[in-house]
Computed example of a mutant assay.
Amino acid sequence: MSGPVLAAGCVLWRRAPEGGTEICLVHRPRYDDWSFPKGKLKRGETALEGALREVQEETGHRCEPGAALPTAVYVANGRPKEVSYWAAEAADGTFVPNDEVDRLAWLPPGSARALLTRPGDRVQLDAFMGTLRPGT
C-alpha cells in the first residue's frame, strides 16, 4: 500500500480596503465546494513550493508565505490525504475563472468560516486568526 496523497495550500488573506482582514476562498465546480486554494504536490516539489504554485494557479495571485498552519489529515476517495498549509498574504494578481476554479470570494473571517464546505478546514482558519496582530 502506498502512503498518503500529499497536497498543500494556503489560507490566503489580504488587508480589507475598509480595515481588517479578508480571506480568499475558491469554488471548485467538480466538487461544488468552497475551500482554501490547495492541490496535490508534483514530483520533487516541496510542500511550500506546491502551496505557492496552487495559490497562483487557482487564484491568479502571487503571495508571501507566513506562518505554517496545522496539517489537515483526512480520507479522500478512499485514500488518506495530508494537506500542509501556510498563512499567505496576497500580492499582485488577477483571478481568471477556469475549469478547476470557477469562482473566488474575498470574505471577512466569520463569513469565510461559515462558507467553508469542509468543517475540518475551520481548524486552519482559526489557527490563522491566532497569528494576526491586533489591527491586521
Rank of each mutant, 00 (worst) to 15 (best):
T117E: 05
A68H: 07
L41T: 03
V26R: 06
A112V: 06
E22Q: 15
K81W: 00
Y74Q: 05
V73W: 06
T59P: 14
V26S: 07
H61Y: 15
T136N: 05
P134I: 02
T59S: 09
Q124P: 03
V11K: 06
E54G: 00
G60Q: 11
L132M: 09
G3L: 14
W106A: 02
R103G: 05
R79A: 09
P119V: 08
L107V: 03
W34S: 04
V73G: 03
C63Y: 00
P70G: 08
A76K: 10
A72T: 10
Q124V: 12
G135I: 11
A7H: 11
A16M: 05
C24R: 05
Y74C: 01
E82M: 12
L125H: 12
F128N: 05
Y85Q: 02
L48P: 06
A105E: 15
L52Y: 01
D126V: 06
E57D: 15
D126Q: 14
D121M: 15
D92L: 06
E49C: 00
V73K: 14
R79C: 01
P17F: 04
V123M: 06
Q124N: 14
A88P: 15
D121V: 00
G120F: 11
G78L: 07
P108C: 06
M129R: 15
E49I: 11
G19C: 12
V73P: 02
L12N: 08
M1I: 01
L25S: 03
W106G: 00
G66S: 11
E82T: 04
W106C: 03
Q124W: 06
P4Q: 07
L48Y: 05
L6S: 10
W34P: 05
C24E: 09
P134S: 11
C10T: 11
Y31E: 12
R15D: 13
I23S: 09
D121W: 08
V5N: 03
